[in-house]
């Protein structure tokens, strides 16, 4: 069997594991490290339920081969909550009922956190009127477009958008 030893820093904890070269980051997290916060919804990058922060950026862990990310820093929704205190994004999802079955939720939340960093960095999106503009004004349309890589079959979008909006506005005030 083709195996490699890798190191992953997951939610601030270092793990050394030997993995089948076929193992994805998602399966390494779920099956090997017992972290089932990222979910498997499609396994092909078509739903976003597996979203984690990979070296600081949101990414589909189902399409990332674990072996190719030796040494990576990974943050899941589980670790967004620190010392038992939920992350503001998590509290906002609860307050706005931005979820139903909860299966896409950890991915949505990690994605939203990563997305706000991208906005702060001034990245344009498909609905940005002028891609050469310096600053992004985070309209609801921008939130919707930027969150479209996270499917929710329960259809909680109309609550997810205000949940993210509240955190974004709070962040902008700081």
């Amino acid at each position: 069997m083709n195996e490699e030893e890798i190191m992953l820093r997951v939610d601030c904890e270092e793990h050394r594991i030997i993995v089948d070269t076929r193992t994805t980051l998602l399966d390494a997290l779920r099956e090997r490290l017992g972290n089932t916060s990222p979910k498997k919804g499609c396994d092909h990058g078509q739903c976003g339920a597996c979203t984690v922060l990979l070296d600081g950026r949101r990414a589909n862990s189902c399409l990332a081969l674990a072996v190719a990310h030796d040494g990576a820093e990974i943050v899941t929704a589980e670790a967004l909550a620190e010392n038992g205190d939920l992350h503001p994004m998590q509290r906002s999802f609860i307050e706005h009922d931005g979820y139903q079955c909860g299966y896409c939720t950890p991915g949505q939340i990690v994605s939203a956190v990563g997305m706000l960093d991208e906005v702060e960095a001034g990245w344009p999106s498909h609905v940005t009127g002028d891609v050469s503009a310096e600053k992004i004004s985070l309209s609801d349309a921008e939130i919707r477009e930027r969150m479209s890589g996270n499917l929710c079959r329960c259809g909680a979008y109309a609550n997810i958008v205000p949940a993210i909006r509240e955190v974004a506005d709070e962040r902008a005030r700081r």
């Binding site: 990058g45 950026r57 990563g114 890589g149």
Partner: peptide
């Protein structure tokens, strides 16, 4: 930015 999704474009 009209292709894929934010998290795919990051990879």
């Amino acid at each position: 930015v009209s292709g894929a999704s934010g998290q795919l474009r990051n990879l």
